[in-house]
Design a binder for these strands. Structure first.
Lengths: 266, 266
DNA sequence: CGATTGGTTGATTCTACTCAAGCCCGGTGG
DNA sequence: CCACCGGGCTTGAGTAGAATCAACCAATCG
C-alpha cells in the first residue's frame, strides 16, 4: 500500500505504462497538473487478480488511476443478479461518484494483477479548479464514458446474443490496443472468462458458450483461454455493428486532441 | 427561433420553470455564471411535440438547456432498430459530445411541446473555465448521468420485462416531480406511449402492453393515455428494485448540495 | 487426492418475439 | 352525414431465442 512495496511486481500486465509504474497516466495526461497529481497521490495499491478494490456501498472519497492491469466494475442486485458495467484498461480513472450520495453504487475488482494510484476526491477537485486543461481532460473523459455507456445500452436493448458477444470482444480488442483496423488472424489478450462475458452481456454463461462456438464455426473469431483471434475482421465488424464514432472513442485517435499519452509512448 | 417569438406558447408544459421561460435553469443553477450564461445564449427554440432537435450524425457544436417539456434521446442502428437512451425533463442540459468526434452519435426529439435555450459549446467551456462552482455543477451532472446510465444497463441486462417496465415508469414519475415517497393512488403525467416504452426497455410494444396489463391486474400500477396511477407504491418499489442511491439521484434531494433550483422554486 | 472452477454439450422449458387480426378514436374528405 | 383512414392499443396463436436443468470433462489447487 506504500511506495516501499515492490511496485514493479506486476509490470508485465501493463500495456502502456510499464516504464513508469508509479505515475498517473493515460486519461490524465502529462502536464503540470499531472506532476502535481503524481505528488499528491495518497498511496499506490498493488492487487492480485480477483481482489476487490471497493465494494458497492463502501464510503466514497478516493479516486483511482489504473496504472497496469484490467479492472471490472459491476452492480449487484439484492437477489444475487450481477451486471458488469464496464471493463477498464490501463490509464482509466475511476471510483468517482456524484457528490451527495452516501456510498458507492457499484463495486470494482481487479481482473488481472493490477496496480493503481489512489487520489483523494477533494484533491482531484482542487486540481481541476486550478488547472483548466486538466479539468477539460477530466470532463472529456466523463463525456466519452457516457457515450460508451450509451453504446452498451444499445447493445443490451437491441442486439441479439451473438451480436452482443461479438461487439464486446471487438470493443475490448480495440480499446486494449488502441489500434484499428485489425488484420485477419490477429490475436489479443483479453482477460475474461465466459461467465464474465455473460454478466457483461446480460446472458447466461451457457449461452455465451454457444455463441462463441457459432462465431468460431462462422469463421469470424475464436476466443478461448483469454485469447481472442479475429479470423475475419470484416465479418466481425459487420456482426458487431460498430460506427466510426465508436472507433474514434475506442482508439487512441479519439484521445489525441485532449489526451497526451505518457512521454514514453508518444 | 429568436427571442421575439412567443416564448410562453408552451409554458403549460413546464413543471418548474414557467415563471422564467427565458432562463437557463435546473442543472445549471442560479449564480453569476448563470446570469452570464443567460446573456450568452444564442437562441431560444420552441418545438412542437415530435419535432427533432438534432439527428444522429449532425455536426456537433451547440448545447441545449431544456426549459419546458420533455425530450427523448435515442440511437439508431443501420437496420432500423432504435434504442431510447434516456428521457429528459425540464432543467436538463444535453447535446454535448466528447470533443474530437465528427458528428452527434445520437438524436434527440421533443416528446411534448418544448422550449429550450441554445448555447454554443465553446461558450460553455469558457464559462466552465472561469467559474469553478459552475464547472463543478456541470461535472456533477455528468457524473449523475453516468450513474443513471449504469442503472439502465443493469435494468436491460438483468431485469425481466415486467421489472423493466415498472422500473422505467417509477423512475420517470419520481424524476418528473422530484418527490418521494409516493402515496397510494397518486397519478403522474408521463408523456410516453407503449412503443416508446418498448424502445427504452428493449422490448416490443406488444409485450409492453402485456406487462402493463399484468401490472394493472397485480394492482401495482395503471398506465394509460400518458397517465400513470401508482396503485401500490410498496409493491412497485419492490418490483422495480430501486436503491436509496437511485432515489437520491432521482429526487431533488440529490441536487440540493450542488444544484440551486430557480429562485421561484426554492 | 477430493474440491473447485471453467468449459462443453444435450434435452427441456419458458420468456419474449412474430404474425395476424380487431378495436377505439380522432381526423379527413366525399 | 358517413366512409375512410391511420395510430395506438389489445388480444390470440404460433415460433424462436435464450434460460434452465443436468450431465460430463479438463485443469488447477488445496
Amino acid at each position: 500500500m506504500t511506495e516501499a512495496e515492490p511496485l514493479l511486481a506486476h509490470k508485465s500486465n501493463c500495456v502502456y505504462c510499464a516504464a513508469r509504474p508509479l505515475g498517473v497516466c493515460g486519461a490524465l495526461g502529462d502536464g503540470e497538473a499531472f506532476r502535481e497529481l503524481r505528488d499528491s497521490r495518497r498511496a499506490v495499491r498493488i492487487l492480485d487478480a480477483g481482489m476487490p478494490i471497493y465494494r458497492q456501498g463502501d464510503p466514497t472519497g478516493d479516486l483511482f488511476n489504473l496504472v497496469s492491469g484490467w479492472v471490472v466494475q459491476y452492480q449487484d442486485l439484492e437477489d444475487g443478479r450481477r451486471q458488469v458495467l464496464r471493463f477498464l484498461v490501463p490509464g482509466a480513472l475511476f471510483g468517482y461518484e456524484p457528490s451527495g450520495i452516501k456510498g458507492m453504487c457499484h463495486g470494482a475488482d481487479a481482473l488481472t494483477n493490477a496496480s493503481l494510484c489512489v487520489v483523494p476526491a477533494a484533491r482531484m477537485a482542487e486540481l481541476r479548479a486550478r488547472h483548466v486543461e486538466f479539468n477539460e481532460r477530466f470532463v472529456w473523459m466523463l463525456e466519452r464514458d457516457s457515450r460508451l455507456a450509451f453504446d452498451h445500452l444499445t447493445s443490451l436493448g437491441q442486439r441479439d446474443a451473438r451480436e452482443r458477444v461479438a461487439h464486446l470482444l471487438l470493443e475490448l480488442a480495440i480499446r486494449s490496443t488502441g489500434r484499428y483496423p485489425i488484420e485477419p488472424g490477429e490475436t489479443f489478450k483479453i482477460p475474461l472468462n465466459q461467465p464474465l462475458i455473460a454478466e457483461a452481456t446480460g446472458l447466461t454463461s451457457i449461452h455465451v458458450n454457444r455463441m462463441l462456438r457459432r462465431l468460431r464455426e462462422d469463421q469470424i473469431l475464436d476466443f478461448r483461454n483469454g485469447r481472442l483471434t479475429v479470423i475475419n475482421p470484416e465479418l466481425l465488424v459487420g456482426v458487431a455493428g460498430i460506427t466510426d464514432t465508436l472507433l474514434t472513442l475506442w482508439t487512441r485517435a479519439g484521445r489525441a486532441e485532449v489526451e497526451v499519452p505518457c512521454a514514453q509512448h508518444a
